[in-house]
């Protein structure tokens, strides 16, 4: 029989009984034993564990000084020698969810112990922390508290008993970014014919694959003074200087390059390579302007159609690129372009 787990529970000012929104600036404190929802956790754990302490912190305090607040809380709970930390559940409360995720992550890194939290799928804390922290799926409101507690304690039990974790749908947690192949009971051919037959008969079936939920992209407002605007060129067609000095990968790229166009009127084949595993690159190698149209842009500068071509172009290879990587590239490039006063981008893809 495993020893009794020492659990420390994290709550915000509201669940910790300090007060409402007006108390959101309260700094971290720790109390012995369980408070509020912690009592339900204690009950659910029974003899398996004991809520030895509860750390409470205001959502605004945490949100404004995240790393410092986390360190302060860790210092407060360290003397209680926790085996595991449970945070929340935060349901739909955004600041609270982010704080729960952050404290769990910090506790894992700095105390080397496991941490579990719970929140609703739309809580921003999910997207930020789901790969680092075990996050139970909860409903959107306090009405689902019992279910949330049950799920969190179930996860804690599995983590500490050494039992194999089930799939996210079985153990009610958000997927943690681990993607693996497993053997089904039948071949893909048998499964796809069977799935079609069920669909044709109007019988229930479960798709093995879903469509991605892309966040809507709000277009920027139109450029009103194009004849004085700075326009940049960005591509995912894999154009790199000869020798690919930044070693950008031809698929599953993890970086992008930035290359000077200063003094360059047209791109010469001898100066560039095309490193991209998803299309026939011969035509671009022959004349790189086909992908990154420097020659046409220079003409537009001369004709005063645009103000200026931006002095660098950005490039990566868009082959099997992880979507989160593409988002990172886009955000980084956009930040630089905005800082440089660029108003528009021509983005070429292959």
């Amino acid at each position: 029989m495993a020893k009794k787990l020492r659990v420390v529970h994290y709550l915000n000012q509201f669940f910790g009984g300090i007060g409402g929104e007006e108390k959101a600036n309260t700094g971290p404190q720790v109390f012995g034993g369980a408070i509020g929802p912690g009592r339900a956790i204690q009950k659910a754990m029974g003899d398996h564990g004991e809520v030895v302490a509860t750390a409470v912190c205001g959502d605004n305090y945490f949100g404004e000084k995240m790393e410092q607040a986390a360190d302060e809380i860790i210092d407060l709970i360290r003397p209680y020698k926790p085996d595991i930390v449970i945070a929340g559940p935060a349901f739909e409360a955004g600041r609270y969810g982010v704080a729960c995720g952050a404290i769990c992550k910090a506790v894992q890194e700095k105390l080397g112990i496991r941490a579990v939290t719970g929140m609703y799928e739309e809580n921003p804390g999910v997207e930020i922390y789901h790969k680092d922290v075990w996050i139970i799926q909860t409903g959107d409101s306090i009405r689902s508290m019992n279910e949330a507690i049950t799920r969190m304690v179930n996860l804690v039990t599995k983590l500490t008993d050494g039992e194999k974790m089930g799939k996210p749908s079985e153990d009610n947690y958000f997927p943690r970014g681990i993607v693996v192949n497993e053997e089904a009971d039948r071949t893909g051919a048998e499964r796809v014919v069977d799935m079609l037959l069920k669909k044709l008969r109007g019988e229930p079936f479960e798709s093995e694959v879903v469509q991605p939920k892309h966040l809507p992209v709000v277009p920027a407002s139109r450029i009103t003074n194009i004849e004085s605007a700075i326009i940049a060129l960005v591509t995912d067609g894999g154009l790199v200087p000869i020798g690919n000095p930044d070693k950008i990968e031809a698929s599953n790229a993890t970086k992008f390059g930035e290359y000077s166009l200063s003094g360059i009127q047209t791109l010469n084949s001898a100066d560039y390579d095309v490193n991209h595993g998803g299309y026939d690159t011969a035509l671009v190698k022959q004349n790189p302007n086909r992908l990154v149209p420097v020659d046409a842009m220079r003409q537009m500068e001369k004709d005063k159609v645009i103000g200026k071509l931006y002095e660098k172009f950005y490039a990566t290879a868009g082959v099997s690129t992880r979507a989160e990587m593409a988002r990172k590239f886009g955000q980084a490039i956009a930040a630089e372009l905005i800082a440089a006063g660029v108003s528009g981008v021509i983005l070429t893809s292959t």
Binding site: F174, G177, R191, L196, P212, S320, T321, R322
Partner: peptide, 20 residues
């Protein structure tokens, strides 16, 4: 009904299943 072999999965996605 479609059968797909995935290339370049988004591991940051929160969906319970792999996506297209």
């Amino acid at each position: 009904a479609l059968a797909i072999q995935h290339a370049g999965l988004d591991t940051a996605e929160i969906s319970l299943k792999p996506s297209t």
